[in-house]
Write a protein that binds this DNA or RNA. Structure first.
Length: 366
DNA sequence: AAAGGCTGCAACCGCACTGTC
DNA sequence: AGACAGTGCGGTTGCAGCCTT
């Protein structure tokens, strides 16, 4: 049955359902119309009132979902552009499966859309034995396995407890050992009072080849977004590129603005804790399995009360220097992927998209 | 042409958070 | 402080259409 088609016995809102019964399944055009009209009159929110006021036999959650994902007038239809795909990959590298946060960076796109896209991408790339992340990010992974595409088992109940940023949190140990990323993890607060492991601060927009200083917290690391994406003529949503009233002149400015938006969401109460010059011996390793309790004081570390590394408040803008952190959980697939990555170091931006990828002779490819 | 597999997408479900009483 | 409703989020599922054999 196609979207908008009225199923047998369900013509019209609620038809075919008994009184008080909530309808499920695909929305009909009539239902869409009712919901749209309701929102036009009353605005978004109070979704449970939709049913009361319109007789629409849909629960509030269903109404909200339908509106947010399909009926909102500002939704962008159609497939993702290559630019959007790059943004998604980079955001995923930094945020993990934070679909809503990612969606906030892609105007007109929904979390569901991004989630579906990414999950499809994971499947496709895994099957093809291709890396999930763009070339500039892969350069980081040469020194450590690529991030986990995030499995339900790893992340299912971590939500709201510890943000599941696969590159930031799941593999801090490997990150700390990474030769390309001097160990100076930063603990930051995500707004829920939960610290996040974030990598050392760096000159965010500086080239990756900038000499690293292991003794400082300013080692050059991976930019959130590649300069070509932000500084070139790529078309991006306005709120991703230019601060209103300011000309965007450098990739750094673009990066900074992009991340600023993220920082605003991530910082919450604004408290950021820095583990200064912290090495693996000094900082507790938080495994993915410890996430649910590592910060409550009963296990792992509690950076607020008993920091095992020296901490200090930092400006939120310093999070600009975030870098993907490898996961400590490595599946067989990932190991294979990492090996493939190491054997295929010369990956170009053009090659990254699977459609154009010529690596069908890569090791492990069937 | 038909069957089976694959893909993309819409929608549901359960859990967590937040605000109000 | 606890209950409750409303809302948001991420994981999962079901299904139609497409593709491959």
């Amino acid at each position: 049955m196609m979207q908008g088609e009225i199923p047998k016995g369900m013509a019209g809102a609620g038809a075919g359902a008994g009184a008080g019964e909530l309808k499920k399944g695909p929305w009909t055009a009539a239902e869409d119309e009712i919901l749209t009209e309701y929102v036009r009159r009353h605005g978004e929110g109070n979704w449970n009132a939709v049913r009361r006021n319109t007789g629409l036999l849909r629960c509030g959650k269903s109404c909200r979902l339908r509106w947010m994902n399909h009926l909102r007038p500002d939704l962008k239809k159609g497939s993702f552009t290559p630019q959007e795909e790059l943004v998604i990959a980079r955001l995923h590298a930094q945020l993990g499966n934070k679909w809503a946060l990612m969606a906030s960076q892609l105007p007109g796109r929904t979390d569901n859309e991004i989630k579906n896209y990414w999950n499809t991408r994971v499947k496709r790339h895994r099957r093809a034995g291709l890396p999930l992340y763009p070339p500039d990010m892969q350069s980081f992974f040469f020194s450590s396995p690529p991030p986990s595409p995030t499995t339900p088992l790893q992340l299912g109940r971590q939500r709201r407890t510890v943000p599941p940023s696969p590159l930031m949190v799941e593999r801090p140990l490997l990150f700390a050992f990474s030769t390309s990323a001097p160990a100076s993890p930063i603990l930051t607060n995500n707004g829920n009072g939960v610290p996040l492991l974030v990598p050392p601060l760096s000159q965010f927009a500086f080239p990756l080849s900038t000499p690293a200083s292991p003794s400082t917290s300013t080692a050059p690391l991976l930019p959130l977004l590649p300069p070509p994406l932000l500084a070139g003529n790529h078309e991006l949503p306005s709120n991703q590129l230019v601060v209103p009233g300011e000309a965007l002149t450098t990739a750094a400015a673009a990066d900074a603005y992009m991340v600023d938006a993220m920082v605003e969401e991530l910082r919450g109460d604004g408290e950021l804790l820095v583990a200064e010059a912290c090495n693996v011996d000094q900082c507790s390793y938080i495994s993915p399995h410890q996430h649910s309790h590592a910060f409550n004081g009963s296990a792992g570390i509690n950076m607020k009360s008993e920091p095992q590394c020296a901490t200090e408040s930092i400006d939120a803008n310093q999070i600009l220097n975030t870098i993907p952190t490898p996961s400590t959980v490595t599946t067989d697939d990932e190991l294979g992927l990492a090996m493939q990555l190491e054997q295929c170091p010369l990956i170009t931006e053009e090659d990254w998209n699977i459609g154009a990828c010529p690596w069908n002779n890569m090791p492990g490819m069937s």
